[in-house]
Structure formats: structure tokens, C-alpha cells
């Protein structure tokens, strides 16, 4: 390798290293804070990057024992799973129809559906309050299961349409020639080839569901029905007292498994996108 290449390489790695650090810093700060005692955290004389007092597990104990954190986590999980199922069941046929069956109207309709996503929840929660009340799901996790698909479905339909457009339709027609009905052909060719796209939908639905705050705050007040995003912020911020370490712990405990899960999927995305087209 000559010097010029080496130089270009080191610039690349320096830039990549900088952004990796930039992205990791909040996460590192969060982990550091979790184990700090109050006396350590709040003393401005101390070096904030070090443990000046011995680290403690007390903050995690506070989170797990004095709040209903495990209930929040379970609620979040249940809501996320149900929303993902609803979203996938609705978006796959919707995106398929819009790309394959709706002809030249499909594109416009798809954009129209996406526009719905752009209406902010801070406006939409007002009319949706009536819907939630009339359906008698107020103050239960079912309010969120019902409402969250209103933003996951438009976004994911649009996402999946882009993906479906890249699928060579020949294989579906070939499957129909080879002896399957249209539905059978979709199930055996379009769906398996779309797995990376569907995984993307799953990831986005989970992410959108987990960080949603406004609807959860507006529709749920009982502690045992809250999700993590609204649960920890309402239970660990008491007036002007912030339980910083416990808040950090609450975030880290969900962030870690989610990050690992995404990483698993990441390999699938890359494998999927380089799957090799049907072209000769």
C-alpha cells in the first residue's frame, strides 16, 4: 500500500472514529451515571468522568423496587408486539396492492397515505381522545395498541412500497405459471424475497412504538398500564426532583437489548439487499 492510499485510509478511519465516539458518548454517559451516588453526581468540584465515590447498585434497586418498572417493560413489550403484528398484517397487502394492482394511481395514493403520517400527534390526540373514550379503552394499554398503528401503518406502507418496487415481478408470474394461484405465488415468492423489507417494517414499528410519548401520556394515567417512555418520566420525576441515575438505568435497560436485536437484523438487511437480482 503506498503512502497516498495510507493517508486516505487514515482520514477515513479518523472520520469514522469521530462519528462512532460522537454516537457512543451519550450512551457512555448514561452507563457512567447509573452507578453514581448522589453525593458524587451533584458535587460540581468532582471530575464528572470518574467515580469519585464508590459506585453503587442502589439506583437500579430503586428503579426495580420502588417503581413499577417491570410492569412498564411488560406493557411496552405487549404493545410493541401487537402493534408490529397489526402493522405487518395491514402494510404487506396494502403496499402490494398499491405497487402492483393500483396502476398509475398507486404512487399518488401511497404518497397520500404517507402524508397522514406527517400530521403531528400533538394535534391528533385531541380527536383521538374521543375515539379512545367511545371505544371504552381509555386508561388501558389497548388505547395504545389501537392508536399506534395510525402512524406505523402509513409510514411502513410507504416504506414497503419502495421495497416492493424493486422486486422483479417475473418471479411472481413464473410461480403462477408453475402452478400456484396469485395468493400462493405471493406467499412463496414475493414474501420470502421481501423479508429484509418486512424486517425493516418490524424495526421501525418497534422503534416508533417504544419512543412514542404524547398518546401514552394523554390516554393512560394508571401506573400499571403505562409503557416505559411515559412510566419512568412520570414516576421518576417528582416535582423538581429528578432521579437521574434511575432514569438513566431505565433507558439503558431497554436500549441494550433493542440495540442487540437491531444488530442481528442489520446483517439480514445487508444480506437481503445484496441478494442478487433475477437479471442474467
Amino acid at each position: 500500500m503506498d503512502a497516498k492510499k495510507l493517508g486516505a485510509r487514515s482520514v477515513l478511519y479518523a472520520a469514522a472514529g469521530f462519528f462512532a465516539l460522537f454516537a457512543a458518548l451519550p450512551f457512555g454517559w448514561m452507563i457512567l451515571t447509573i452507578f453514581k451516588q448522589n453525593t458524587d453526581l451533584y458535587n460540581p468540584q468532582y471530575n464528572p468522568f470518574l467515580y469519585n465515590d464508590p459506585p453503587t447498585l442502589g439506583n437500579i434497586r430503586l428503579l426495580l423496587e420502588d417503581t413499577q418498572y417491570l410492569t412498564f417493560a411488560r406493557n411496552t413489550l405487549v404493545v410493541a408486539i401487537l402493534v408490529v403484528v397489526i402493522t405487518v398484517v395491514a402494510t404487506v397487502p396494502a403496499a402490494y396492492s398499491l405497487t402492483r394492482l393500483a396502476g398509475r394511481w398507486g404512487e399518488g395514493l401511497g404518497i397520500g397515505i404517507f402524508l397522514v403520517y406527517l400530521i403531528p400527534p400533538t394535534l391528533l390526540f385531541i380527536p383521538l381522545t374521543r375515539v379512545v373514550a367511545d371505544l371504552n379503552v381509555k386508561n388501558t394499554i389497548w388505547a395504545m395498541v389501537l392508536v399506534y398503528p395510525t402512524f406505523t401503518i402509513p409510514f411502513c406502507t410507504w416504506l414497503l412500497m419502495g421495497f416492493f418496487k424493486s422486486i422483479p415481478w417475473d418471479i411472481e408470474e413464473q410461480a403462477m405459471i408453475d402452478g400456484y394461484s396469485r395468493l400462493g405465488a405471493i406467499w412463496r415468492t414475493v414474501i420470502p424475497v421481501s423479508v429484509p423489507g418486512i424486517l425493516t417494517v418490524v424495526v421501525f414499528s418497534v422503534a416508533l412504538t417504544m419512543h412514542e410519548f404524547v398518546y401514552a401520556l394523554a390516554f393512560v394515567t394508571s401506573s400499571n398500564q403505562k409503557t416505559i417512555s411515559v412510566g419512568v418520566t412520570t414516576e421518576l420525576i417528582r416535582g423538581d426532583v429528578f432521579y437521574w441515575q434511575a432514569l438513566m438505568a431505565a433507558a439503558a435497560l431497554v436500549a441494550l437489548p433493542v440495540a442487540l436485536l437491531y444488530n442481528l437484523f442489520l446483517d439480514r438487511f445487508i444480506a437481503g439487499f445484496t441478494l442478487g437480482a433475477v437479471k442474467g
Binding site: 418471479i171 413464473q174 405459471i177 424475497v193 433475477v278
Partner: peptide, 20 residues
Amino acid sequence: LPPRARKIAMVFQSYALYPH
């Protein structure tokens, strides 16, 4: 009749092999 009921075989220009 749908294609599957015609007992035909077709080879597309792209060959349309199932990539998965």
C-alpha cells in the same frame, strides 16, 4: 383459466429464477 390450469411452461427473458 388462470395460468396454473393451462399446463404450460414459460421461460422469461430474465429467466425469473427464484433468488431465495
